[in-house]
Design a protein around this nucleic acid. Structure first.
Lengths: 127, 127
DNA sequence: CCCTTTCTCAACCCAACGGTTGACAAAGAG
DNA sequence: CTCTTTGTCAACCGTTGGGTTGAGAAAGGG
C-alpha cells in the first residue's frame, strides 16, 4: 500500500511536463512509433526517447517491438489512480465546505466569522 | 486558453511531491497554520513554508492572516482542471479500445493481429 | 557482407528543486 | 520598549531533470 505513494509521485511528475502531456494526448488517438511522436517537437530523438522512458516508468505507457520500430501504447488504467486520489480530497473538502455553510447559516450572525475560522482549525487538527 | 497548460504543469508538479500531497490531504480535513502543518514532518519550518508557496502558486491553496498566524486553506476547484484533463484522454483511449475490440470481433480471425496494429497506428497518425 | 533506418545508452551541461542555516519582519504579551 | 511567537526571505548546497552530442545496438534491404 505504501508503494502506491511513490507510484503516484511518478505519475504526477511524468504529467508535470507539457511535452509529455502532449504525447499522452497524441497517444490517446492511437499507438505511435518514437519517430512519429518526435515529429512535432523541435528536440532530438534521444530527448523524446527519455520522455517515453519517464512515461513508461510511471506506468502510463508500454512499448513493444515491430522490426526496428518501437510502437508506444497508452495504458489508461493509471489514470484511475490519480482520479481516485483527487476525488477523495476534493469530496472531503467540499463536504467540509457544506458543513461550514450549515454552521454559518445556523449562527446567522450570532458570532464573528473569525470565531468560526478558529473553530474550523481546531476541528481539522482533531479529526 | 494557452496559459492553462502552464497551470496544469504547476498543479501536477506540485502534487508530484509526497509531502505536499500529504499536506493537501491534511488540509482537506480543515484549515491549518504553517506550524500545524509542519508538525508531522522532520524538516525545518522554512522547508514547509516553501512547500506551501509551491501549492499556493499552483492555485491549490490560499493563505490569509490571523495575528502572527497564516491559516492555510485548500482551494479544491483546481482539482477540476486536472480531472477534466485526465478524463478527456482516458475516455478517448477507452473509446479507441472499444472500437478496436469491435473491429477484431468483426474480423474474427480473417487477418493477423499485426495488420490491425499497423492499421491502428496509421489511423492515429491521420487523426 | 555492408548500408540504412530506428531507437537507446552514456556522458556531459545547466537550470530547477528540496533541503539547510541565518537574518528579520509582523504582531501580540509583558 | 523589549521579548516571544509565527512565519518569510536570502544564500547556499547536493541532487534531479531536460536538453545536448557521440557511439552503438537491433533489424531489415541491397
Amino acid at each position: 500500500m505504501v508503494e502506491y505513494d511513490d507510484r503516484l509521485s511518478r505519475v504526477f511528475s511524468a504529467l508535470a511536463d507539457p511535452t509529455r502531456r502532449d504525447m499522452v494526448a497524441r497517444l490517446a488517438a492511437g499507438d505511435a512509433t518514437v519517430s512519429e511522436l518526435a515529429a512535432p517537437y523541435d528536440v532530438s530523438l534521444q530527448a523524446v526517447s527519455k520522455h517515453l522512458k519517464v512515461l513508461e516508468e510511471a506506468g502510463l505507457v508500454s512499448r513493444s517491438r515491430d522490426a526496428q520500430r518501437r510502437p508506444v501504447h497508452l495504458d489508461a488504467e493509471v489514470f484511475d489512480l490519480m482520479t481516485k486520489w483527487i476525488e477523495r480530497y476534493r469530496q472531503q473538502a467540499e463536504e467540509r465546505y457544506q458543513r461550514l455553510d450549515a454552521v454559518l447559516a445556523r449562527l446567522q450572525g450570532k458570532a464573528s466569522p473569525a470565531d468560526e475560522q478558529q473553530r474550523q482549525r481546531e476541528q481539522g487538527a482533531a479529526g
